[in-house]
Design a protein around this nucleic acid. Structure first.
Lengths: 338, 338
DNA sequence: GTCGTCGATGTAAACGATTCCACGAGGAGG
DNA sequence: CCTCCTCGTGGAATCGTTTACATCGACGAC
């Protein structure tokens, strides 16, 4: 592969001059510039990003460590992150932690070794020493979706409180009184917050959230199935199951179906995180939608601000309720349809 | 960040010795090794992968350029690729081409500039000069899922011929005679092959595939919707729509619903590429499933073989039909259920 | 006419690793 | 006792860039 030396030789100038035209430094004659450009063209020269990074100590690369690529929410997040990063002149390397702290650490270490310029992470747990050290060492970092309390890192996330309140109002209006939740891991902020928001919203209607109605999931489909089976086995099963993410909702749907029960007739179902597929499930699932794309873009902007020396901003965007049919027909719809 | 020099100083040895310890070269005394290891520990030293890559001319990184991350098929592929690569000591950088040749080129160029050790690609088009040049220049490359004919690169893919035959048999058995297909872009092998397999299978039943029953899609949901609307507007609409990928099937489902029609009663639907969500759609969708995980793993193995000097192997794995309810109830099921 | 400035260029030193080569000590073999 | 190997080690070159510094000619101002 042709190097800068070859170009210099072909153009009859020094490597410094070649470098200057490539980085369009002002101080180079038109003549030299033309000869260099011609040489670059004929040799098909492309600068070696590895060497360049070594010298400049910048890779123009962002790391993104997410908890689960197979979750459409994170896929969409990853996509918007890459788009915004590309627009700002950065590449992104994605690490999939699969909700496993050890894998998360593996990726963080790998990305740090590659000297990425900054790290976007949606932490799977409370933060390993490795990650905390990286923050302390000054690695530009931004948390997205989930975060770690007490760590001084900007957070870009969405606030579901209002939407959860709307959801509970919707459920209450439909006559449901026994509401259960499939929670995410307590080690994650989203895992805890969604339960709290739910509990608070219930309280506003004088409803409680008994221990038995809080199932412990791990944001994966299988746990949704397991927890839902537990709910169904209760002497007094809930009338509604609210899954704290879309995958667990899918598992819950499976469990309900496996018993030969139907949604929403026998039990209602709602989920946090809306995805395109929810329109097409049987029945379409009522969900709380995050502004995922905007979240990804804002996270990248915050990180790049931090990297380039501008003060980064934490951002919180509201989520919103999208009503479909999985919790029962609303009176208005019923009237118009039946 | 501590460099190898700092470690050498702290351990009272030369950088050469530190390097030897780190790459466990045999010729280093136990004493020196212990001191170096201790210094590494206290300094929290991690070798700079950028510098190492520059010197050794290897990045231990694979590039993966896929056509669309939001497509669950490719997401799963990406995941299995990363897993296998990790097992073999490689990282992977994913580039999302979004079915756009220009974006594909952008990512290929970017990955080449970063001097990745090898490239896995699922080409969006017939191959840009850039990609062809890279092959000619000797960049280790493997095509996965889709490929470019006439280019000497190993291909890892699945063969859907038999499964398409099974599908047509299934449809024919259900009494369907007017079968239409939403094709993928003609620039892709999968786009062309699936139509041909379908046409061949139909011929075996004495059925033809009229021009009007071949809609041109682009593997994205929106095109599925558009094409299906076209089918529905025909004086004699098809009884079955076979979508050449899962996203277009989703679009087709939308279009059918938007007309107030029902699947499978008014029109049957089948798709190439099975995904977990198809179990939960209304109705569950009959699809042709590829062994996606195995495809990803085989592709990585082939690429790594090529990189490490072993002869790489092309691999073709069979796809299989998964019958669900979107094409109508099979007689057997009907009998047992009603 | 001289001096200072400025623009265009080249030389060479980094960046952080790996690795070839040389060197000295110590042991084995004659 | 000398020679030759082996083993552990350090020095220094190298990978492909960027960039500080030196150089040199031309030109404008006095």
């Amino acid at each position: 592969m042709a190097s800068i030396k070859d170009v210099a030789a072909a153009a009859g100038v020094s490597v410094a001059t070649v470098s200057r035209v490539l980085n369009d430094h002002p101080s180079v004659s038109d003549d030299a510039r033309a000869r260099v450009l011609a040489a670059v063209e004929t040799l098909g020269y492309r600068p070696n990003a590895v060497a360049r990074s070594l010298r400049t100590d910048q890779t123009h690369t962002l790391g993104l460590v997410i908890s689960d690529v197979m979750n459409p929410y994170f896929t969409e997040l990853a996509r918007s992150v890459e788009e915004e990063a590309r627009a700002l002149g950065y590449s992104v390397i994605i690490g999939n932690a699969d909700e496993r702290p050890d894998l998360q650490d593996h990726h963080v270490r790998n990305l740090l070794d590659r000297r990425i310029d900054g790290l976007l992470v949606s932490p799977t747990d409370g933060g390993s020493p490795l990650m905390l050290d990286a923050v302390r060492a000054g690695t530009p970092m931004v948390f997205v979706d989930r975060w770690i309390p007490g760590v001084d890192v900007p957070v870009v996330r969405s606030d579901g409180q209002a939407a959860v309140r709307d959801l509970v109002a919707h459920l209450h209006g439909l006559g449901h009184r026994r509401l259960a939740i499939i929670a995410g891991p307590a080690a994650t902020t989203t895992g805890r917050e969604r339960v709290e928001a739910f509990r608070t919203a219930l309280a506003a209607y004088g409803l409680g959230l008994p221990e038995a109605y809080v199932g412990q999931g791990d944001f994966q489909a299988e746990s949704g199935r397991r927890v839902t089976e537990g709910f169904l086995d209760l002497p007094e099963p809930p009338e509604v199951v609210f899954a704290a993410d879309n995958l667990m909702a899918l598992g819950a749907l499976d469990a309900v179906r496996a018993r030969g029960l139907r949604v929403p007739d026998d039990i209602a179902l709602a989920a946090f995180d809306d995805i395109p597929w929810f329109v097409h499930t049987d029945p379409p699932i009522t969900a709380i939608a995050q502004p995922t794309g905007e979240l990804g873009r804002a996270a990248v902007r915050a990180l790049v601000d931090r990297i380039e020396g501008r003060p980064p901003e934490s951002v919180t965007l509201p989520a919103r309720l999208v009503v479909r049919r999985s919790c029962g027909e609303s009176p208005a719809r019923n009237r118009s349809q039946s």
